[in-house]
């Protein structure tokens, strides 16, 4: 899951830095993730993992880091393979 998230982040995050340089707990907003890019990432994650983020997870915290995204997706799709 981690590598898929990194791939989608690289494609949709619009980050000025390479995703490979970011630790799992690095702050994505500090790395340059905009509100709009986080929405595009959210939609791409939903598509990829076939999940729907519930309203209580549609916030900045859920997309704060790769680890936070992993946790959010795991919580809504417990069967997903967490790599």
């Amino acid at each position: 899951m981690n590598s898929t998230i990194r791939e989608l982040l690289s494609k949709h995050g619009g980050l000025p830095v390479s995703v490979e340089t970011l630790a799992d707990d690095a702050d994505l907003y500090e790395a340059g993730l905009s509100s709009f890019a986080s929405v595009q990432l959210m939609l791409a994650l939903e598509d990829e993992f076939d999940v729907e983020f519930p309203e209580n997870l549609l916030n900045r915290k859920s997309f704060q880091s790769i680890a936070a995204i992993t946790a959010a997706i795991s919580s809504i799709a417990p069967d997903s393979q967490v790599a």
């Binding site: 509100s35 929405v39 939609l43 549609l58 916030n59």
Partner: peptide, 14 residues
């Protein structure tokens, strides 16, 4: 839309 929910939440959080 739903994407807008997230933008709205972001706006409030900040």
């Amino acid at each position: 839309g739903r994407a807008g929910k997230m933008l709205a939440n972001n706006q409030r959080d900040q």
